[in-house]
Amino acid sequence: MVYTTHKIKIIMKTILFIEDESALQKTFGDLLREEGYEMISALDGEVGLRLAKEKKPDLILLDLILPRIHGFDVLKQLKEDKETKDIPIIVLTNLEGIGDVDKAIALGAKTYLVKAQYTLEEVLEKIKKALE
């Protein structure tokens, strides 16, 4: 039994979701668990940065409008820290101003998804692709 748990832990990929909307935390928590991933929640930028360093997730889903530390600063700090710089980051936000996408990509985000433009399944596809 212990062996099985151990084995699952190795296979299960971890995703850190930095997002202040608890409704989305719940939805993605259930979705990703059903899809066989482990999800860690962070409701603000500060906790997000701390958990990224502590848990070293395989992927980070990052909202931009966040309490305490803005998403762009979280992204910048994650990419500057050598411990976290190789973790792929998907920006998942409703922020869509001129230059936001270019700024996030320049800072090192892998993909930039505007929430309003994607279905849940499409976001899941992007997550799976980023984890390949």
């Binding site: 309003a116 849940l120 399944e121």
Partner: peptide
């Protein structure tokens, strides 16, 4: 309106 709508839409989809 955008954020609550995304939350609603994705919850329904799930």
């Amino acid at each position: 309106l955008r954020s609550p709508l995304s939350n609603l839409r994705w919850a329904i989809e799930l």
